[in-house]
Amino acid sequence: MPQNQRVDLKNLTLEELTGFLSGLGKEKFRARQLMRWIYRRGVTSFAEMTDLSKALREELAERATASDWTPERVEKSRDGTRKYLFRLADGQTVETVRIPMEGERATLCVSTQVGCAMACTFCLTGTFGLVRNLDPAEIVNQVCAAVKDGPVNNIVLMGMGEPLHNLESVVKALEILYCTEGFDYGPRRVTLSTSGLVPEMLELGRRVRVNLAVSLNATTDAVRDQLMPVNRRYPLRELMNACRKYPLPPSQRITFEYILIRGVNDSLEDARRLVKLLHGVKAKVNLIPFNEHDGSAFRAPGAEAVEAFQRTLLDRGMVAIRRASKGQDISAACGQLKGKLEGAQGLLPAPEQKT
């Protein structure tokens, strides 16, 4: 690292922060103090960290920074959903969505990449292509910005990007979010959603605990090949074998997200095939009606089709939940706010295939 480049402390896990401070000749416990200031108290100015010596605060100001985000745009829905658009240091943008739950609870949907390389045909973000991965600070800063609007109870890595395509940054971000001196999110409060990168799924399970959600969306390879090109590399049989091998605590299940698309995957025959496909997997199914958006020929299923699909699963002993759509009066689908603003401004770049 160049001598004049300051370290963003939000890129560092507790262990890495301890190492950084040790390199400055400082005591190990200072790392925990810094984590408390930055994450628990939301303070990013070293001058305000009053239980640190003046000399340490001045040295940190010379050698480090603690980045802090303010959204460039916020859309607010009648149901309380908030969609944030953040502009990054290089001019790129990502979205984050705050979803109200029962009572005062909220779930935050976080992005892990600018764009996405998976090219799922139903997903607006996939049309942007992959521009780049987010670093750990850029993932964590979405949470830091959102908690300014109130507590965030649960986090889902389910926004723009494929989290397992950015595994190293995602694992580090999880370690930062889990740190007891910081936000202290337990693994049961964080869910990671993947399109089905099989080797990375198994690597994730070996390295860190997190709730796993698999974006499934089809019951045959022929249909899933069309909806999700990743299936051509890791077909359903291979994906299901990986799900059976994924390490789960005794009471935990893998969530299978199933976006229902009219006339594509919403038949009763699809429902019966889904039951067979998930046999032997500790599973629950989230049924999500397709969120229509400009540029897509896909359509949402009718309410009767959704109810019949769910009833078929329930009658066969499966856990099947209909997920209510939020933020329907704003740019609700992943990528809509980015596409609307940047497309109108002519800012959508030609994607560079970077990892």
Rank of each mutant, 00 (worst) to 15 (best):
L9M: 07
K10C: 11
T13E: 05
L14R: 07
E16F: 10
G19H: 12
L21P: 03
L21E: 03
S22R: 13
S22P: 13
S22Y: 15
L24G: 09
G25S: 07
E27L: 14
F29S: 09
A31V: 04
M35V: 13
M35E: 06
M35T: 09
W37S: 01
W37M: 01
I38Q: 04
R41N: 08
G42K: 07
F46L: 06
F46M: 05
A47R: 11
E48W: 12
M49R: 01
M49G: 03
S53N: 08
K54G: 11
L56F: 05
E58M: 15
L60W: 04
A61G: 15
A64W: 02
T65H: 07
A66Y: 04
A66G: 09
A66M: 12
S67Q: 07
S67K: 06
W69I: 03
W69H: 00
T70C: 09
E72N: 12
R73F: 02
K76D: 00
K76W: 01
R78C: 04
D79W: 00
G80V: 09
T81C: 14
K83M: 02
L85S: 00
A89D: 15
D90L: 09
D90R: 03
T93W: 04
E95P: 04
E95F: 03
V97E: 01
I99M: 11
I99N: 02
M101Y: 12
M101E: 12
R105D: 03
T107D: 07
C109T: 03
S111F: 09
V114L: 07
G115D: 00
